[in-house]
Amino acid sequence: MLEIRNLKASVEGKEILKGINLKVNAGEIHAIMGPNGSGKSTLASVLAGKQDYTVTDGEILFEGKNLLDMKIEERAHEGIFLAFQYPVEIPGVSTVNFLKTAVNETRKAKGLAPIEAKDFLATMREKMKLVEMDSKLTSRALNEGFSGGEKKRNEVFQMAMLEPKLAILDETDSGLDIDALRIVAHGVNTLRNKNNAFIVITHYQRLLDYIVPDFVHVLSDGKIVKSGTKDLAFELEEKGYDWVKEETINS
């Protein structure tokens, strides 16, 4: 589904991603861990198409198509979704209205007519239940005055509504209480099927108890320095990142 080859990206002349290689197949869940500032969010942003970052080398293929040629919204229409580490607030636009526009713009890109109001509402209701989202929140302006945890939950709710092929969750677990974490994980696990894939960025092994990854990668200083299975996360939790760093230097 996704293939990243030797991806290098920089911002304001400073190289952040220094040659990333990653292959994600449909049906898989990949976890990316790594120290602060190692480039995890940058990788997510480059996948989504944020303009601040200049791709200096490498390529990204998504279902065989060159992702780097596509505009941000085109990538979204292709089925890429990013749950933001820091979701923005949009004053005056309710989550409902926002999502309806998002759904309809994607449908438009596929040559489909706008969704029927009653179908949309039915889907809304179903997905709100899935992530136990309060209807008071969805009728309020998007993320405006939401608590940190509510914002994160709203990201997962949007993901559920848009049913992406590839969802990238950037530290969606941070700021969530234990119950919310379970709910979010339940959402992801319910949405998971053999045709979609997830990249889960996290600092905590805890999340991976709920969302069990097929692979765990460690990103350090702009490179994937180690890949493994779920056990790698345990090892990291125990030994810290220095352990991987040392290992890379020694190898």
């Binding site: 989504a48 941000i72 919204e73 979204a76 933001f84 998002a102 713009e105 848009l162």
Partner: peptide, 18 residues
């Protein structure tokens, strides 16, 4: 705008919405 774009909403449409 990046947030809207990422949800599949282009700039013109995002501006209208907002």
């Amino acid at each position: 705008l990046f947030y809207c774009n990422q949800r599949g909403i282009g700039n013109e449409e995002a501006v209208n919405l907002i």
